[in-house]
Amino acid sequence: MSEQSGARGAAAVAEGPHGSDGNDGDPMVVVADLERTYGRGGTAVHALRGVSFEVPRGELVALKGRSGSGKTTILNLVGGLDTPDGGRITLDGTDLAGLGDDERLALRRDRIGFVFQSFGLIPILTAAENVGVPMRLRKVPAREREERVALLLGLVGLADHAAQRPGELSGGQQQRVAIARALANRPVLLIADEPTGQLDAETGLAVMELLRAVVRSEGVTALVATHDAQLLALADRVLELRDGRIVADGAA
């Protein structure tokens, strides 16, 4: 099945993400005066300098900027992988500063899906087994897990590749498996860091179109870091970063 048909298949998915703990009228993500510095003294690197923005529910918002501009730092902080030095992050009505380590782990497992440039698939597992890993961690019953895996592989156009391992798949196919895995636990937020960085232009565009389609079909909100102008055009909104600050915020 082609990349494009996989994107079209997204529209057929009826199941949505977890119910929201916040107010449906509120933004999914609120970032206020975010500060993050790495190192100390003369070698300190100010990765973020008072960054503020909101991500409305159901939108795909892209972050663009040169390497070192702060894109990945923002994704790590919003995704609960790191903690800021100052400022506040609210995700689906939850203030991340108030969470302990176990609560952060549960947040990442149950409410956030991650897609990385390097795919991050487990080589010895099949495509279906890779997609099922997040649900195994949540101890989802086998039948429910298998049904969700089949649904998601169909969603990304890989129903016929369920038994293949990552090494037997193309780069575009591996990234589509990674997207399916990120959606396994019906997250409210999808975070993608340069998801097309290892793909050629045509495959990368198809993968970005797939992300656009699953945002619509699954009702998920997405925050995506990319530098590709063609991919940025598919976003609802683009935030441009430079030296740890947002220098532009507008429609793609």
Rank of each mutant, 00 (worst) to 15 (best):
L137W: 13
T221D: 00
S67L: 05
K64I: 11
A180Y: 03
D160Q: 12
Y38L: 08
P141I: 12
V214R: 01
E240P: 00
M208A: 14
L183K: 04
G68W: 07
R8H: 11
E54N: 06
G244R: 10
G19I: 08
A184P: 03
G93P: 05
G154W: 02
P27L: 01
T226W: 12
G42T: 11
I74S: 04
E35N: 06
E15Q: 13
L189H: 09
T37C: 11
L211N: 09
A62H: 09
L137P: 08
A10P: 02
P56G: 06
D102H: 14
A159W: 01
E240K: 09
V29S: 06
L63G: 03
E202F: 02
I112N: 02
Q164Y: 12
R145T: 15
A251F: 00
P56N: 11
E168I: 06
E54A: 12
L152H: 11
G244S: 08
E168K: 11
F116A: 02
L169E: 08
A251D: 13
E103Q: 15
S67Q: 05
G154C: 06
D95M: 01
G68K: 00
V207A: 04
L75A: 02
V220D: 05
L99W: 13
A222F: 12
A97Y: 03
K71C: 01
R8F: 03
H161N: 06
T72L: 07
E59W: 03
G244V: 03
A12W: 12
Q173P: 00
V220I: 15
S170I: 08
D102A: 15
A14F: 07
D110I: 03
T203S: 15
I124G: 12
R216Y: 00
E218T: 15
R212H: 14
G16A: 12
A182C: 02
S67H: 06
D228A: 15
T126C: 09
E15G: 07
A10S: 13
I179G: 01
L77E: 12
G113M: 03
A180L: 06
I246Y: 08
R143M: 07
R36W: 02
D82V: 00
V78M: 09
L48K: 10
G167C: 04
G80L: 08
G100F: 13
V13F: 08
F116K: 02
G39R: 05
V55H: 11
L155R: 05
K71G: 04
G39A: 09
G22P: 04
T90A: 05
A106H: 15
L155V: 03
E147D: 15
Q174N: 14
E144G: 01
A251S: 14
H46L: 13
V140A: 10
P195L: 14
G42W: 01
V29L: 13
G157A: 05
Q173D: 01
L210K: 10
E209Y: 00
A182T: 10
R212L: 02
R143W: 03
A127W: 02
T37D: 10
A10R: 04
L63N: 05
G22Y: 08
R49H: 11
M208H: 09
S67A: 03
A248R: 15
R49I: 06
L91I: 03
R237W: 01
V78W: 02
I122P: 05
